[in-house]
Design a protein around this nucleic acid. Structure first.
Lengths: 361, 361
DNA sequence: GCCGGTGCTGAAACCGTATCCCATCGTTTC
DNA sequence: GAAACGATGGGATACGGTTTCAGCACCGGC
């Protein structure tokens, strides 16, 4: 019948196939499908029947090349099995699909090379925005690297969004969605101090990670506010994982450090710490109190349930996507820094059962 | 200079801009960038310089429209914050990016409507494969629905991969990557039985979920093999979450059910069960033993560490992607069912500290 | 010195869709 | 009854690349 292709047609059906079979023009099919142009009922019926018969779907690449197309956002995350930031991804994804947007997910595995490659890949895809999730390492290079990303994406009509990282300095075209990291740590430490604890083991995280730095600062400020001396020897840095929590507490006990509470940088770290205390025969919270940070589901599943800082991760994801959508609607207009490009969400302490006043000596 | 665009060029640079500025043809730029055709060093240098100056990246849509383009796989998952199947996603993503492939992630939220919409969306994107993650509900409709997906994707040059679901019946163009679900449950139950337990509370999961059905069958077979009567009253169905584990055990204790062990359908369910036992003043494993399923990180972070069934989730993801890549390389040739389109990976029991012989009466 | 390669480059033809612009046809208005 | 008009349909072009095909320059061999 058709001279373009043999009957055993292997590839997918095109809009031309539909037009031909329905006996109408290609333009009409396009109009029926996108529905942004008046079409007679008769034509619509004819076209839709063929569309169903052929199980036709439009080619998204061709569509977006021709100007249409569904907007897409890229989510770049360190580790998709990680606890906290997958909730941000969920928030972004949910908000995106609510608007009919698509989301691409890439994992960087903490590798700057891979991060660069992914940003470029996403730029090729013409994404509406690249959303970078998770705390960053505060190397000197970080600012420059991100600034380069931001400008590069911006000049390609895209946009960089940083979630859970510190904002970029200077006049860089990027949006930051942040939470009150330091404030949460301040409140959490205050909670311990007001319960009477004075000797606190602090496990803020990796010393070069921006979130760890903020959490440590918050804790220090709380100590100052309470007039309690802050002992640097009680601070143990390390990764945000279970093993670090376990090892740090084990080590501290071995070194006979004197503490009545543990301020963990993360709920997972707190879980490890709790396990180590228990292995040493200490009770939580009767002998030692523990607090975490993040308020992931695990926090309420531990025994005892963990007092921790709630971070609105999913909300942050939604906010990030809204920021992208907003800026796209009003034409990415004037920026000039400081505008609405740094959004900070609040945190708060969730009191559960892992804190008690310290035991009498 | 150029008559095509004004100097304030807002959009991204095109290959034509590069060609013009380098004083060469569009074809040459394309050849330099894709590198699949001989080009003189001089030309390459000239082009690459302009590419760097303009920070140019090729338009992925145009590229894939013209035939080239990087292959993309779609990962469809119920809940990106879920525990087990995110590891599959990680496996897929890792294997994909190792080959330079891209991965799209969509979440279905257990909604068949959304699943349908996403499959169509992915079909529009021209993905190499759609990988569906997680157990399925065994409604009558399931087989037909999946078969339709499979054929639809197949005819569009794509492919359906089911991970952690039962394979489709009949001659359907789909690949299934599965694990020995029933075998794992059999081994796990045997472990409890051989420790001397006879009264076991079984929390297999939602009764219509295929994975739950398999786990229940495996347990039953083990009881039969040991000649131990299987009491249906000791089976409590429910979702795979912490709350269900907690509530089921609480309820069982209230009803004064007599049991010395809990066989949970999931590590998370086991965690909930453990918490409930402890809340009732029972010790694990001295008074009651508990086992889980999945071997997610949580399992080794509980106190006591959980004896469970290891499922090679991440490996399954890698295997799924390899299957897609293989079939694409050898041209998706002959199928005719049964070929290599059902891959089963093994499971094994991981013995930790949550099982002891039952206490003497 | 001429002819046939060889090695690279350029022009043009697509890929599949959206949309601008024009043609057509049935109505309404004077 | 003619002209103007609104409502639709069709043809052509653009989107940004890849790839085929042809062409040009330069080379060696006879």
């Amino acid at each position: 019948m058709s001279e373009r292709k043999a009957s055993g047609d292997p590839g997918r059906a095109t809009i031309r196939d539909v037009a031909e079979r329905a006996g109408v023009s290609v333009a009409s099919v396009s109009r029926v499908l996108s529905g942004n142009y008046p079409v007679s009922d008769e034509l619509r019926r004819r076209v839709m029947k063929v569309v169903r018969d052929l199980d036709y779907v439009t080619n998204a690449h061709a569509r977006s090349l021709a100007g249409g197309g569904t907007p897409t956002v890229a989510i770049l995350i360190n580790n998709i099995t990680g606890a906290a930031f997958t909730h941000v991804a969920k928030g972004v994804e949910g908000a995106a699909s609510l608007r009919g947007w698509l989301s691409l997910v890439g994992t960087t595995g903490d590798d700057p090379e891979r991060e660069l490659a992914l940003v470029n890949l996403m730029r090729q895809q013409g994404v509406a925005a690249v959303i970078l999730l998770g705390g960053a390492y505060d190397y000197d290079e970080y600012q420059m690297r991100m600034a380069r990303f931001a400008r590069s994406l911006d000049s390609a009509g895209s946009h960089l969004v940083l979630v859970g990282r510190p904002p970029l300095e200077g006049d860089v075209p990027a949006t930051t969605v942040d939470y009150d990291n330091e404030g949460g740590a301040y409140a959490m430490a205050s909670h311990l101090l007001s319960a009477g604890h004075r000797r606190v083991l602090v496990l803020p995280g990796h010393s070069e990670l921006t979130t760890a730095q903020g959490r440590l600062r918050g804790a220090q400020r709380a100590f100052e506010a309470y007039g309690v001396p802050f002992d640097p020897d009680m601070v143990l840095h390390g990764p945000y994982d279970y093993e670090h929590g376990y090892d740090a507490v084990e080590e501290s006990l071995r070194r006979k450090l004197d503490f009545t509470a543990v301020l963990a940088g993360t709920d997972v770290v707190a879980a490890g710490a709790m396990q180590a205390l228990r292995a040493a025969g200490l009770r939580v919270p009767e002998d030692v109190s523990i607090v975490g940070y993040d308020d992931i589901p695990l926090a309420s599943q531990l025994t005892p349930q963990l007092t921790t800082v709630h971070v609105p991760y999913e909300e942050m994801g939604r906010v990030a996507l809204r920021a992208v959508a907003d800026r796209r609607e009003r034409g990415a207009g004037r920026r000039k820094g400081g505008d609405g490009d740094h959004l900070v969400l609040g945190t708060h302490v969730v009191v559960r059962n892992s804190v008690q006043p310290p035991p009498l000596p």
